[in-house]
Design a protein around this nucleic acid. Sequence first.
DNA 1: CGATCGTTTGAGTTTGATCAAATGTGGTGG
DNA 2: CCACCACATTTGATCAAACTCAAACGATCG
Lengths: 254, 254
Amino acid sequence: MNPATNTSRLLQRLASLTPLSPEESHALESAAGSARLYRPHEDLAREGESPGHIGLLVSGFACRCRVLPDGRRQIVSYLIPGDLCDVRHLLLPMATHTVSTLTAANVAQFNRETLLGLIERHPRIGQALCSLALVEELIAREWLVNVGQRTAIERLAHLLCEIFTRMSAVGLSDRGRCELPLTQVELADSLALSTVHVNRTLQELRRQGLVSFSGGMLEIHDFEALRSIAIFTADYLQPGQTQHERAQRRFAPR
Amino acid sequence: MNPATNTSRLLQRLASLTPLSPEESHALESAAGSARLYRPHEDLAREGESPGHIGLLVSGFACRCRVLPDGRRQIVSYLIPGDLCDVRHLLLPMATHTVSTLTAANVAQFNRETLLGLIERHPRIGQALCSLALVEELIAREWLVNVGQRTAIERLAHLLCEIFTRMSAVGLSDRGRCELPLTQVELADSLALSTVHVNRTLQELRRQGLVSFSGGMLEIHDFEALRSIAIFTADYLQPGQTQHERAQRRFAPR
DNA sequence: CGATCGTTTGAGTTTGATCAAATGTGGTGG
DNA sequence: CCACCACATTTGATCAAACTCAAACGATCG
């Protein structure tokens, strides 16, 4: 891992969806504003507002969530380094979800107008960003399947597989381990389970020797077994790959 | 309602997101291939395949769903007239969901290359289509909140509110009524409930005098009450509107 | 050294699932 | 026109996954 620039993880992800020329990459890179540091549990965007810039999570974790008037909360996605807070605000003015940091986080800002101008000159960049948004949609759909059809243990296993795979894709995993600074309350709000049940389900995964999860660190001891419990496939995370490429890498992603 | 052309409902929806010039509209209109008629329960796209064209549902209903290897099925969205089957295949080659008709359906085909060429000449069209995809993402997220946080009766009420609002937006509702050719099995697979429970929940909505639903026709007797049970707001369906516009129309959508 | 936050454990409850069967409702073909 | 079939809806009875409530335990921190 070379020392990451603000945009390097984003570019890494874009490259796997829509190949960008060096100039295009560079143009995007230089459009990024300097990063601002946020503290844990600060809001990056609030439901109903229309921010004038697009944030790029450089480091740290954040989540996107919706809260019903009576307090029920559903986390609808996690943001990891390299994720854009809201590509959709380029085109749709109003935020329909709140985005909050989970940990301290560095967020680089793209000015909305600057980015729109950039896309006009480099349509490929627009395509790439749009692809990124489409992948987010696939993830949202997979979460729906998860919460709708899988049992508690399958759900949890699936979430862990997904996050680990995404972390790996931006070089943030190492020998089966990655950072994962989530509390059981947050897991519960993601999986639509109670905290108590998440706790027991986690214990079951530990008991089976599949994962360790404590101190903000996730370690997967047996990815194949976890994946099989979860009925997880990474297709939806790498929709740019053809079947053939995927087959070749089947045993590679660690 | 003037006699609808193949693309008129699509154009109607696009107009509310990204204003298109008459030329742009016309260009898009003439890019549409002739419609093909499908029978009920035919697949328009299959998981894992990469279709060479983009379908536009001209009439009829369809659904997008994922099936787990053991048969559990989650419907992840409904397609109504004016919806594109898969904008995302413009950029992402592989289908991650199966799309099937629910009723007989007319589907106009856009050739993928033609449409990409069109977008190159008219970037605004690209923007508009991208916005459309973003709205689908918002819908998917709302479904996640629905299945994750709402009770059975809230879920069902929410789904009915959503579909009715979408049907209204393309001129397919009339005095509180719209077509809705879904079986209770399909409702169950959308809401992550059992058929039996959907049946009982529907009865409860009927008992409260809120809706009628039979023979493929939905009638909402008290939208306000239904909406209040569902904790429904249409924000996510009309994200192009500013707060102000929405306030003005609050009492208008019928 | 309390205070706060997160995790863990136990006991009882509820929502919605499952199973099984009865009752419509169209369609088809004799 | 009726017998039949497939499919959808409805009802009843039982069951289980996950929830709620309550309390204890454990870290971390000013």
